[in-house]
Amino acid sequence: MHDEDASQEAAEIARARAGDTGAFATLVRRYQDRVFGFVLRMTGAREEAMELTQDIFLKAWTALPDWRPDARLSTWLLQIARNATLDVLRRRERVGFSALDALPDVADPAPGPDAHYAGRQRQALLLEALGQIAPAHREILLLREIEDLSYADIGTALGLTEGTVKSRLARARLALLARYRPLAGGVDD
């Protein structure tokens, strides 16, 4: 984010903290797709992710007076999103929700030009593999590769040291490769 945008956002946050719901709505619009994308990739269920995204921003509103400027707002929101999502995944586990029921919400790619079809098929398989690895591995990969967070920001969001971020990311990549390699083996270019 440029300095100008950052100072504009700081002003919006200050207004939202003071109770300005319109300023908060502006912040919601800015981050709603990032939060939704993260939650969707974590849970694999679109309807649930939509509802959860709404809950997350309502929670953020409640917690906003306690937010401090030394945390980037996006990192802070992703942390709230991550905690709320883990709650949902734990609840699923308690009620015996099978991992297979939570396969990522990806439409079967419609056949098209071959190269595009292969590409979409590969994406579907990657999402499937992502849905099969442990949530702790999935979340750290999403934060790194999709959200493009630094190791330091990942550490902040997940409550880990940078050293642990480094080792967990490495293990997460191995876990994803182990699932993805056999799935992707049959996809032709």
Partner: peptide
């Protein structure tokens, strides 16, 4: 490959929806 995954969009204005549900804070 991960970075190439399609970006998801919520598809509606959550800001407006949330704003309508929030009581103005003092």
């Amino acid at each position: 490959a991960l970075r190439g995954l399609p970006r998801e969009s919520l598809g509606f204005d959550l800001g407006a929806r949330i704003e309508s549900r929030l009581p103005a804070r003092a």
